Amino acid sequence: MSTAPNPRLLATGTSGNAVTDLVTPALLLRTPAAPWSQLVHVYVPAAPTVAFSGRDLRSPGIAEATALARAAGFEPVVRSPGGRMVAYDEGAVVIDHLDSTTDIRHAGSATFAANAESHVRVLRDFGVDARIGEVEGEYCPGEYSINVGGVAKVVGSAQRVTATGSLFSTVVQVAVSDRVRAVIIDLSRALGYELRESSIAGLADHAPGLTSADVAAAFVADYRVRLDMTDADLPAAVARHAAKAVGGEPFHVDDWTRAHPLAVEGL
């Protein structure tokens, strides 16, 4: 890991495990005196994942939703950022943007707006009519969701801020498979969330032939240039520690990381 005073690092690739992928940014977020100012991790998930939020846990239907996710072949995980449930597989791209200089004073709508504007510019280069804003009946609704043509949601983001920095996490739906569509519909019903099924879509529905690899590469290039980032691997100590994560059903990322803090020596 670089020890430069203000490094901005860009990592790519997945562990292949849904739990490890979601534990990794939570561990990075909780790294005291992190040797980076910003770290962005862009990857194409290898495992079908249902990422619940703390808000979802308050629904009386969470046990049913968890069982439905598991029965459909999705790993149910309670992620660190907020928002509501999202499901994805290898047809998506996930971006975790960590900032060790951010505190609660810099959280909120300004961060969401700035990220959405940057993401929209990348997506428009693929020829899609990407727009910022919530569409009627979308899953995990948000003011700064990104839609295509004002009709269907394709990108959602959520944030977590702690004393050691911020985590801004984004899921870009590129090619929505039948299994992803079905699990979003079934879990929305179980959790009691309204959903307009036609609001579920991927970029490839509007730009045929577009792949997750294409979109991941475009975001990597954008972050590299826009934020002057240096290509790097994820810290080996974090990767090793995240690989130890096991737990209940669904797996609670924050509970595990609080109970198993990372020793920072060697980062």
Results as ranks from 00 to 15, higher is better:
Ala114Lys: 08
Asp125Trp: 04
Leu167Met: 09
Ala217Asp: 08
Ala204Ser: 15
Gly156Thr: 01
Ile184Glu: 13
Val215Lys: 13
His106Tyr: 13
Ser198Leu: 06
Leu187Ile: 14
Phe219Arg: 07
Gly127Trp: 07
Gly192Cys: 14
Leu98Met: 02
Ser212Gly: 13
Gly91Phe: 05
Asp186Pro: 01
Val176Asn: 00
Asp205Gln: 13
Asp125Ser: 15
Phe219Met: 01
Asp178Ser: 15
Val215Pro: 08
Ala92Arg: 01
Ala116Cys: 08
Arg121Glu: 13
Leu195Ser: 07
Val176Thr: 15
Glu134Ser: 09
Thr162Phe: 04
Gly142Leu: 06
Ala110Asn: 14
Gly165Met: 09
Ser166Trp: 05
Ala92Val: 04
Gly192Arg: 08
Glu134Val: 01
Val215Tyr: 13
Asp129Phe: 00
Val171Leu: 13
Thr164Glu: 15
Asp222Asn: 13
Ala221Val: 00
Ser212Gln: 11
Ile132Leu: 03
Gly209Asp: 06
Val171Gly: 14
Val86Asp: 00
Val120Thr: 03
Val172Phe: 10
Ala175Tyr: 08
Ala207Pro: 00
Ala163Ser: 14
Ala110Leu: 15
Ile146Val: 08
Val220Thr: 11
Arg105Gly: 05
Arg121Met: 05
Tyr144Pro: 09
Leu167Asp: 07
Thr102Glu: 02
Tyr88Gly: 07
Tyr88Asn: 04
Gly209Val: 06
Val93Ser: 06
Glu136Ile: 01
Val155Ala: 07
Ile184Arg: 02
Phe112Ile: 02
Arg105Cys: 04
Thr170Ala: 09
Phe112Met: 01
Ile185Asp: 02
Ile146His: 11
Asp96Met: 03
Leu167Val: 01
Gly150Glu: 11
Asp103Asn: 13
Pro141Arg: 07
Gly165Cys: 02
Ala175Lys: 12
Ile200Gln: 09
Ala158Cys: 10
Ala207Ser: 06
Tyr139Met: 04
Glu136Gln: 08
Leu203Met: 12
Ile95Pro: 08
Asp96Asn: 15
Glu138Asp: 09
Ala175Pro: 01
Val161Asn: 02
Val220Phe: 02
His119Met: 15
His206Ser: 06
Ser145Ile: 00
Glu134Trp: 12
Leu195Ile: 11
Val86Phe: 02
Arg105Trp: 09
Glu117Met: 02
Val135Tyr: 10
Leu123Thr: 01
Tyr88Thr: 11
Ala116Thr: 03
Ala216Val: 00
Val171Phe: 14
Glu194Asn: 05
Gly192Gln: 09
Glu117Gln: 09
Pro141Phe: 14
Ser188Gly: 12
Ala130Asn: 05
Ala221Tyr: 00
Val122Asp: 12
Ser118Gln: 12
Leu187Ser: 03
Gly127Asn: 10
Ala201Asp: 08
Val174Arg: 05
Gly142Lys: 04
Gly91Cys: 06
Arg196Asp: 13
Leu203Ala: 10
Arg124Thr: 00
Arg189Lys: 14
Gly108Pro: 06
Gly127Asp: 08
Gly150Val: 07
Thr164Tyr: 07
Ala216Asp: 03
Gly165Trp: 02
Val220His: 08
Gly149Leu: 03
Gly133Val: 00
Gly192Ile: 14
Val94Tyr: 11
Arg160Leu: 07
Ile104Trp: 12
Thr162Gln: 01
Val220Lys: 11
Tyr88Gln: 10
Val155Cys: 09
